[in-house]
Nucleic acid binder design. Structure first.
Lengths: 333, 333
DNA sequence: CTGTTAGCGCATTCAA
DNA sequence: TTGAATGCGCTAACAG
């Protein structure tokens, strides 16, 4: 592996000269520059990125940390992040937090191998996040609420979304409404549940603990929770699934039991993932501005990096997407 | 930002001692270790990853280079890559090649910031790939054929898949079959087209250039190509879309024109993306072993890193997934 | 077990 | 313009 020394030697110049030449400095004669470039070419020289980063203490890259790189949900978010990152001339790397404290993600955070990071990964603990946050190293979190000077928040209005979903069910004549929850320790889930409760209270419906089931944000979990509900032989009129994946799992369970959606029971999801539109019946759900959330997050990071002052909290709004999984029977409230 | 020197000073030991202590070396007394750790804690010390990489010339991470991190297609592939990477104790970073030669991906390749890479990105040129390949830096490419000692290939059998798709249409009584292609310069597309041609020839059907249209592997492209086909007022009996995304776009176009799939025309896709099963009608397609391709790729990298000898080419097989988008009318051939 | 020291490859002085 | 010298933060060989 050729180093800049070799190049300099071959070109018959000093190392610094070679360095200047290769970095397009203007204080080098064209002739030497050419010479150096030729030498670099013949030696197949490539600079060692680490060495130069070491000096510059700036990596020009930001990290997007996800709990699972392969999730379909993240597609749009990534798109938003990617668009504004590249348009600012920065590099983006996505890393997974699988493996928790041992993960690539944590390594990048702790060792400050990037200039900033966006975190959407429940398996990165708050401690690690807080430990990594510091001046000049902006962190944007999407799935938690952290009190720290250097941590910024971009959230979607989960409470309102949960409210919207539940109220939509209520407005369409349902008053026996179940909630299929995500992992109980997740922020998003808590908030959506709170929205559900608010809507219930607001409309004078009493909460029935037996109708709170646990899926874990997975299709499989939604399927199981739904099976359980069916087995109870006391079906509610509507179900609010805390995310679309679980709702799709539920759809499957109902289909297996010959229960018709939305005639026999109504369901509503949350997220508006791409699939929602294609399942049968098309899933009524709450749309999250995923692309915007991603774009805004990076945007904040750049502002922070530039030394601007920005708010610590941003909240994006959610929207109801009406499709066909809720039996419509508009009632007066 | 505290360095290891500060830690050593505070702990009253030499730098190397501090380094050993922090790296869990066994040649340090527990007492000193504790002392150093305490010092590190109070100074909020974090090692500079670049500096240590610089020394070790090993990063313990491999890169997965995708042309677009947000594509739904990649989900399973990433999963495969991720699983075996983490189970080998390595880190994985995914980077996008958006931006071509200026992209993060290229930077990682050229500057050898990782120990190995898997490339599936049409916008990374062959030159750059070849330029980066070298001893001790294994590269696995998934979408091209490169003659180089240090480049390894994992391919799916696109030719056979294309053949399978086309023949399935033929076997079901279609002999006027269109091909909606991906970008003409892509390897995958070429191969699938070749499979299509082979099937045509094999069954004595002559190829009609007017039935080769160009989508570009996008849903939108498939939609436009299909519109074009419809506008020609000379519909074939079947269409082989070089990927599922385009087929789904086509489905939409047909729906807009009141043309029924599969009664009026049959279509078949390629990839078997998740959505394929959910569109209406469910899409008959060719399944690629995406997870396996990802897993095998990383596996090869590890073998290479370990100095083992491995073949330069691996080919994974494809499989026909029968669903409902092809009008069934089994005929004798 | 602990301390000293020499680089890793590069960018950046400062003199010449 | 150029060249020699310095240091970035860390690791590891070697010596104590």
């Amino acid at each position: 592996m050729a180093t800049i020394k070799d190049v300099a030697k071959l070109a018959g110049v000093a190392v610094s000269t070679a360095s200047y030449a290769l970095n397009n400095s203007n204080k080098i004669s064209l002739a030497t520059k050419k010479k150096v470039e030729a030498a670099a070419k013949t030696l197949n020289y490539m600079k060692n990125g680490f060495a130069s980063d070491l000096k510059r203490t700036k990596t020009n890259t930001i990290a997007l940390i996800l709990s699972d790189l392969s999730g379909p949900f993240y597609s749009e978010l990534i798109q938003g992040v990617q668009d504004v990152t590249t348009s600012n001339g920065y590099d983006l790397i996505a890393c997974s937090s699988i493996g928790g404290p041992q993960s690539t993600a944590v390594k990048f955070l702790r060792e400050k191998r990037v200039d900033g990071a966006i975190i959407l990964a429940h398996n990165i603990s708050d401690e690690i996040t807080l430990e990594s946050a510091r001046k000049g190293f902006p962190l944007v979190v999407l799935d938690r609420d952290l009190e720290n000077e250097f941590v910024y928040h971009v959230d979607v209005d989960n409470v309102h979304g949960g409210y919207l979903a539940t109220e939509y069910l209520i407005k369409n004549g349902h008053d026996k409404i179940a909630y299929v929850s995500g992992p109980s320790n997740t922020y998003d889930n808590e908030l959506r549940f709170q929205g559900y409760m608010n809507a219930l209270n607001h409309h004078g419906i009493t909460y029935q603990p037996r109708w709170k089931l646990s899926g874990d944000f997975t299709r499989e979990g939604g399927y199981r929770a739904t099976k359980l509900l069916i087995a109870q032989r006391d079906l509610p009129q509507g179900i609010f699934y805390a995310n679309d994946e679980m709702a799709i799992g539920g759809l499957q369970a109902f289909k297996n039991h010959g229960i018709n959606i939305p005639n026999d029971i109504s369901i509503i999801g949350f997220d508006d993932i791409q699939l929602a539109e294609y399942v049968s019946p098309p899933l009524t759900t709450i749309k999250q501005p995923k692309y915007e959330a991603g774009a805004l997050s990076v945007h904040l990071i750049f502002q922070l990096l530039a030394g601007d002052n920005v708010d610590h909290h941003y909240k994006l709004s959610t929207e109801l997407i009406e499709r066909k999984s809720v039996k419509s029977s508009e009632i007066k409230l």
